[in-house]
Amino acid sequence: MAATQAALSLQDVTCTFAGGYTAIDGASLDVAPGEFVSIVGPTGCGKSTFLNVAAGLLQPSSGRVHVFGDELNGLNPHAGYMFQSEALMPWKTARDNVAVGLEVRGTKRADALAQADAWLDRVGLGAFGDRYPHQMSGGMRKRAALAQTLILDPKIVLMDEPFSALDVQTRQLMENELLELWSADRKSVVFITHDLEEAIAMSDRVVILSAGPRARIIGEYKIDLPRPRDVAEIRMTDGFLDLHKAIWADLKDEVLKGYARTSRA
C-alpha cells in the first residue's frame, strides 16, 4: 500500500560493482510526494550510488525501484538530478544551459529561452544569462544548475551534496532559496549531504547511512520543526539542538568507523 503511494520507493537495493565492491547493501527507502528527505552518512558510504539508483543511471544488483507505483526501468522520467560536481555544459551560456532541457523535450526555442530567463531571475542570475560557466563563480554555477534542474518541473528532485563546494554564507543563502522554491510547489526531494546540521535544518526526515562498504540505513528521524524555516536561525533553537544531539549520538560511531578505514588505507 505504502509502496504504491510513494513518489519514490527503493526496496532492498544492493549495489555490487564489478570487482566485488558492495557500496550499498539492502537499503530501503520510501519518499512521499512533497517530502524533503535528507540522506546523511560519512564520506564514501555510497550516498551517490544510492542517488544514481534512484535516478535510473545505475541498475541495482538486486532490489527494486518504484516511481509513483511504476517499476523503474531505465532513466527516471520524473526525476531531476543536481550533481555534486560541475555538470553545466561549458560551451553553452547560462541561459542556454537552463533552456536546453526544455528544448530537447520539444519546447520551441523562443519559449524555452523566455522560461529560462524567468528561472534565471528566480535564482538571482537575471543579469548573467549570457555568461559562460567559466565566467561565473561557484555559487552562480550552482544557481544555474538549480535552475537547469527545476525548469523541467520534475516531481522528484535528487540533489547530491549540491552546496558542499560553497562557502558557509553562500551556502546558507542557497539553502534558504532552495527551501523557498521547494515550499512553492512541494516536490519530493532527496537531498544528500555529509553535513548533519544542513540535513536537519532543511528536511522533513533525516536518514542515516552506515559507513561503507556495505552501507545500510541505520536510522530515520522525523524532523518536526516548524516551517517556513531559516537555516541560519533554526540552528539556534532548542528543538534543533535536541534532534542534533540524538542523531549525532548514532552517527558518531559510523563517522569514526569511516574515518578509521580511510586513515588506515
Binding site: 532513466l75 526525476a79 550533481f83 560541475e86 555538470a87 536546453v100 523541467l152
Partner: peptide
C-alpha cells in the same frame, strides 16, 4: 557528469 546530466535533462 556532463553526460549523465544531459541524459537526465
Amino acid at each position: 557528469v556532463i553526460l549523465a546530466n544531459a541524459r537526465m535533462l
